[in-house]
Design a binder for these strands. Structure first.
Lengths: 193, 193
DNA sequence: GTCTATAGACGGATAGAC
DNA sequence: GTCTATCCGTCTATAGAC
């Protein structure tokens, strides 16, 4: 007779390690999130991390995989009226960032990227794959330059609001952000350069 | 007779340590920039760091002091025509960031802020003191909200161009940046909200 | 002011028992 | 699959000789 449920640790152990790792990378960065402290919070033996992920870098690589599909987040933008695409994009991005899982992933990328070259490249690629590709589908010309401008504004919003937590930026509501920053994105997308 | 020149290490030693520290904090972040590696590159005994700065945090605190006066950098903005303040501000900031000393200081703040709470607060305060104060002097109303918007855009430009080094953003010239982002800043400064 | 020596803690990784 | 034990490296900080 097969045992019911899962065995002691099983594949649940792996998932719990990964969740705690994401949490600690996001909160403390790569070096301070030690394998021992991750194992401790996950109530798991430290040696299991090596067992499941090979090394600390292996764990980081897994942790940096996107928890959501950017295409899904930005889906509504493509369906919005052409005159309000900018506003729709701000609304979609802020909406995603306000969820704990996405915000944590953003902070994890940022804090590990700060001291780990590989993580920086992952963040660069992620931003390219989500924003540049999405923008290229929305605009007619100069996709690279337009997406560059969009990325400066959107990355800056996330950086000042969720990482630095500048009081003046935190104070703004999602609605105010959409109203004030939406037109900027709109201009970057459609205005002559 | 007084000895000519300076004695073996003297105050020159201190300055050399500080310069190397800024360099390594900017390049590797707080934890990877060990006192040993800083002392090594500065060709100085590791114990001298404690001697001059008390502790590693003391060294960091010194290293985070602004190497330039933001008021001087932004001086030209106040003298520009009201219709082109945004463009002038972008020009002034990019001009500053393109110098090695300012760019290094920005990267140092960012990389240490990522894993060190104190550094994050310093960065927050620095941005407030330079941008918020400058903006408040330029605008008539809603200084907090206007400066918040300006900070999202300017921080995002610095972040994507100098830290992440997104190819599409790096490719833009200072002139192109002033032309494309200047109007955004202008709108944040003067348009009705 | 400068250096040697070392304390004392913590890091990642591995070998092997169960 | 899980855990104990341990190797070996690195780190910050300090005490004290010169």
């Amino acid at each position: 007779m097969k045992p019911r449920g899962r065995r002691p640790g099983d594949e649940d152990t792996r998932a719990r390690i990964l969740n705690v790792a994401r949490e600690q990378f996001a909160h403390s960065g790569y070096e301070r999130a030690s394998m021992r402290s991750i194992a401790g919070q996950a109530q798991v033996d430290p040696a299991l991390i090596t067992h499941y992920f090979g090394s600390k870098v292996g764990l980081l690589t897994e942790a940096l995989r996107l928890p959501v599909d950017p295409a899904v987040v930005l889906e509504s933008v493509g369906h919005s009226e052409p005159d309000h695409m900018g506003e729709a994009l701000v609304r979609a991005m802020v909406g995603a960032w306000e969820t704990p899982v996405v915000r944590q992933h953003f902070l994890g990328m940022l804090r590990t990227a700060a001291s780990h070259e590989v993580a920086r490249e992952v963040m660069q690629q992620t931003l390219h794959d989500s924003v540049q590709v999405a923008v290229a589908r929305l605009v007619d010309d100069d996709a690279d330059r337009r997406s560059a401008l969009v990325m400066t504004q959107m990355a800056g919003l996330a950086f000042t609001r969720y990482f630095l937590q500048l009081p003046e930026v935190v104070a703004l509501t999602p609605e105010e952000l959409a109203a004030s920053i939406g037109p900027t994105i709109q201009r970057y997308l459609v205005d002559p350069l």
